[in-house]
């Protein structure tokens, strides 16, 4: 299925959970925060939260800033 991931259209496995998506992307869950359709998905919901076609997903981390 196609989703918008960090602003870009991308194909990801159907029926992915947030946890599954992070695994698919090779991203360590401890170091990121995830937002789906403008709502934060907390870490305790990564296994339960299913991603649907067309969802807008943001995966963020801390970078240097003032």
């Amino acid at each position: 299925m196609q989703v918008r991931l960090n602003g870009e259209l991308r194909d990801v496995p159907d029926d992915s959970t947030v946890a599954g998506l992070l695994l698919h992307l090779g991203v360590k869950a401890q170091r990121v925060a995830v937002e789906v359709n403008e709502s934060v998905v907390t870490k305790d919901r990564y296994e339960a939260h299913r991603i649907g076609p067309g969802d807008s997903i943001e995966i963020v981390a801390f970078v240097g800033g003032g």
Partner: peptide, 10 residues
Amino acid sequence: VTVAVRRLDL
């Protein structure tokens, strides 16, 4: 210390 929040470079 301040830090910024940005999209992860996938």
